[in-house]
């Protein structure tokens, strides 16, 4: 069954573009990455799925139910983590978690306690006293406590320290193992690569590509900076899979596509002072896809 399905989903804010003809299919148990730069339409898509906003045209369905008409039933099984956490300033963390759990049927005390322990959430603190990281952690507990079938995460790691991110990913993997489908929206590629099996790339409101992570990685290139012993060496250096080479003095910058060990092996034969291999920025991957599209 498709957990999320949209067809030709379009949203305009007046004349401003939100999203245009977005088609997504997310099957049960999938961890689906939704990636794009800020302002590309990620949040618009999520807000439409959650019925915060109404689509201009097209259809969105979750669990086979219409997102506009059957939103209440859909939300019984959804956990949502917003990009920016805004909670009631008169509440303590435990007030908020209690309020949140009362919207669902069942007893979630033990589960809440467990999650609070994992994420080291201080339950007695007032919401307004929390740092943004701690707010995020509270929001995570809130999104997970009712054991939703679908998790919708909008920039989930924003504000979490690396250690907490690690824990978060572990919890997500565990939830996913138990059958939870995850919709993971982010502008950080490495994060999505770590978690997801499939990604949709969105730019300027349109889906550029839906691709498995394996394919994406294979077509992926690295940004390489090498500092050689001399300028001549920098000029002369060549390697298979190297493109867009530029030099400045003894430094060479180029893009590399292929196995990293081959590159390192070829550099091993010449004298180098420094080597820096970077993942390309998301923007650059888009440029890459854009260039492909226009061909």
């Amino acid at each position: 069954m498709n957990i999320i399905e949209t067809s030709q989903l379009t949203k305009y804010y007046g004349k401003n573009r939100g999203i245009i003809n977005v088609n997504l299919k997310i099957t049960e148990g999938e961890v689906f990455g939704f990636i794009g730069p800020n302002g590309a339409g990620k949040s618009t898509t999520i807000r439409t799925l959650l019925n915060f906003i109404h689509p201009t045209s097209g259809i969105a369905k979750i669990f086979g139910m219409d997102c506009t008409k059957e939103s209440e039933s859909i939300k019984k099984e959804i956990g949502y983590l917003p990009a920016e956490i805004n909670y009631y300033d008169d509440m303590t963390v435990s007030d908020l978690l209690e309020y949140s759990s009362k919207f669902y049927e069942g007893d979630f005390d033990a589960r809440t306690k467990e999650l609070c322990n994992i994420f080291e959430v201080e339950k007695n603190k007032k919401i307004e006293e929390l740092s943004s990281g701690n707010k995020k952690k509270t929001a995570l507990v809130q999104a997970l406590l009712h054991r939703p079938k679908l998790l919708i995460l909008d920039e989930p790691t924003n504000g979490l320290d690396p250690l907490m991110q690690q824990k978060f990913f572990e919890v997500l993997k565990n939830e996913n193992k138990n059958g939870t489908t995850i919709f993971f929206s982010s502008h950080i590629l490495s994060e999505v690569q770590k978690m997801c099996s499939k990604v949709a790339i969105i730019r300027e409101g349109k889906i550029l590509k839906i691709e498995t992570i394996d394919n994406l990685r294979a077509s992926n290139y690295k940004k390489v900076t090498v500092e050689f012993d001399s300028a001549e060496m920098a000029d002369e250096y060549k390697a298979e899979g190297m493109t867009s080479k530029k030099t400045r003095g003894s430094q060479a910058y180029f893009l590399y596509r292929g196995p990293v060990e081959k590159l390192v092996a070829s550099l091993y034969r010449v004298k180098i002072k420094n080597l820096n291999i970077q993942e390309p920025e998301l923007e650059e991957i888009f440029m890459h896809y854009y260039a492909k599209e226009e061909e």
């Binding site: 959650l50 915060f52 859909i74 939300k75 919207f103």
Partner: peptide, 10 residues
Amino acid sequence: TIEFLLSKPV
């Protein structure tokens, strides 16, 4: 806070 409220089954 409406984002919180609207994400609940209500």
